[in-house]
Design a protein around this nucleic acid. Structure first.
Lengths: 342, 342
DNA sequence: CCCACATTTGCAACCGATTGCAGAAACTTT
DNA sequence: AAAGTTTCTGCAATCGGTTGCAAATGTGGG
């Protein structure tokens, strides 16, 4: 196993000082072009690679971005991560990733690890049951930028990146109403999480604006998992007055709910129209195809990473930029098109 | 912004040497229990956190594992990553991730970045068109363990982690034959990649063992993407003698192919039985549900990370362990059950 | 009380790159 | 040719832990 070449080795070979080698390799203007050229060549020839630790130690910077997500294996999150990786990689940053598995305790542990790894900045999508943001205080105190995306929370020193969930849910619900639905059930997640409470709001506002009554009993709150969808369907089937429309806060749950309703003999959209949220690949496979909200995961990842890197380069200030809202759209498919039936 | 506390600060406050502080914090046996206790308390009180760069610089170790995948946003890969993250995290390793986007050039660039980041070990699932493994030589030369999983390649100093693709494909094809299929098409990916060439072999062997003819014209090679599935379906529809069974090398492609065939009026499994590969969530949504091979992504991720960490701890040797094979199973669903129809 | 031995502690030299400041060298200007 | 600029180069300190070796302290036996 050969040993590493350092700038000292290069310096010795060329009879210059390590200082000059360091400067040359960083393309410092105060180094003669010819010297630079010679150093470059020698470095390549000797198979030199910079020792990031020495460099980081000195520069107090890591060129690393930390990422904490609830789960890595969801279509939305993995798209977002793909987008982040692309941007980070192009900008010369490494991405270190950890998952909270929807558990605050693990999220706290992960945040500490990230802090100790001295990430330059942090991207976070909060766990299902996170309430306090205390575990991010160490970052704030050290002026390490923290950006929340999707599952966000208000904090005076952090930027949030999200879509207008209220508006999206409003559009989804209005669409159901336009299709003639009068009794619309909403299946939602933990209402402490912005995404779900906002979607509930959008649902509610749409009802009110269309002079339809809002009833608590028409809101089902669960974990939005596949199993939860089945249970929700059973609840709906057991209702005295059956709804004619359902707006679900995510696609996984919407799809399993639809499947269960179909198995029970309900016809979709004739008996019940369904709208989901996220535009997961599933939505184009279930029959009828699921109307949903297009949630731009990849783009959100790109924007999040790009914003963070901007902050790191001092091009803008986290504490000032409060919220970045991305566009989202209603994608209408057959699961909600009652009008097409006639 | 307060400045970091170092072991020197702690040492000064307690009137001991930095050496002792360093040892105490690393739980070195040669430090008095009382002293240790005092140092722990002071460190906590002063909000000390170890500077990994200084430590890495000295120890020549990073506690970081590199991961290169073709794409982050596939159900299989994201499950695998989830498994790796769990294991790595528990063992105190960071995971840095990059994607090749199925492009050798990017894979090479990523490998270089990982090398320069001085990862302690590398986990790789190869890009679609990677042929040479030269870009991993630097790792091998420095005795940095490299483990390939899923998309693997033979290399005398690397471990491969995979399922028995030949056997799985053999099972899948045999199942179709048992269901009465006589003309089975196989849709495959790039045959330079082990996974696809092995599955082709399994398909071929199953035909031969059942005295069915193997015909080149019944093997369709494409990118296995959603679009490719549609095109493959069109090719099949245009065939003079239509097949009565299809074995597809992944689920995404199988599902879109099925959809297209159904739209064209084919009945599944009556006219054509279909078997996929991977057990993506999609398979339980398409109608009829898709028979497929259960490919344990999460477990594969765990095994890969665990093996790597074993190597790093010197508990075993990469150059000796050649291949780790995981169990996989055929999951029979309605898309292939012709026998049930009668 | 002295010596052998075990237990603790500290000195000082690393690890490899970066950077403020000073000084040398080369080039202009008068 | 002397003085003033500009361009390059290098010294030496620094970032914060780690570790081989030596020294200090403590313990117990004789």
């Amino acid at each position: 196993m050969e040993k590493e070449t350092t700038i000292y080795d290069i310096a010795k070979r060329l009879g210059v000082s390590p200082t000059t080698v360091s400067r040359a390799l960083n393309d410092h203007p105060a180094v003669n072009k010819n010297t630079k050229q010679k150093i470059y060549e020698k470095a390549t020839q000797m198979g030199y690679r910079s020792n990031m630790f020495a460099s980081n130690l000195r520069k107090q910077r890591t060129n690393t971005i930390g990422l904490i997500v609830p789960r890595l294996n969801s279509p939305f999150q993995s798209s977002a991560i793909a987008g982040m990786e692309k941007v980070a990689n192009e900008a010369g940053y490494n991405l270190i990733i950890s998952q909270s598995l929807e558990n605050v305790q693990k999220e706290i542990a992960n945040a500490n690890t990230m802090f100790n790894s001295r990430v330059d900045g942090l991207l976070v999508s909060l766990a299902y049951n996170t309430e306090s943001l205390d575990h991010f205080e160490p970052f704030i105190n050290k002026a390490i930028p923290v950006i929340f995306y999707d599952r966000v929370a208000e904090h005076k020193s952090c930027t949030n990146i999200l879509i207008d969930n209220i508006q999206a849910a409003y559009k989804a619900t209005s669409h159901l109403i336009e299709q003639g639905c009068k009794n619309i059930v909403h299946i939602s997640g933990n209402l402490n999480r912005n995404v779900y409470s906002d979607r509930l709001k959008g649902y509610k506002y749409a009802l009110i604006d269309n002079d339809l009554p809002f009833e608590d009993s028409f809101v089902i709150t669960n974990t939005l998992s596949e199993e939860a969808g089945i249970e929700a369907a059973q609840q709906i089937l057991a209702m005295d007055s059956k709804p004619d429309g359902i707006f679900v806060s995510n696609d996984t749950c919407a799809v399993s709910c639809m499947k269960t309703l179909k198995q029970a003999g309900m016809s979709i959209p004739k008996d019940i129209a369904v709208v989901g949220f996220n535009n997961d690949p599933l939505t184009r496979v279930i029959e009828p195809n699921l109307t949903t909200i297009d949630y731009p995961g990849y783009e959100m990842g790109e924007v999040a990473a790009r914003s963070l890197i901007h902050f790191l380069n001092g091009l803008s200030d986290v504490t000032i930029t409060n919220t970045i809202t991305l566009r989202s759209d209603l994608i209408i498919r057959d699961s909600s098109l009652k009008s097409k039936l006639s």
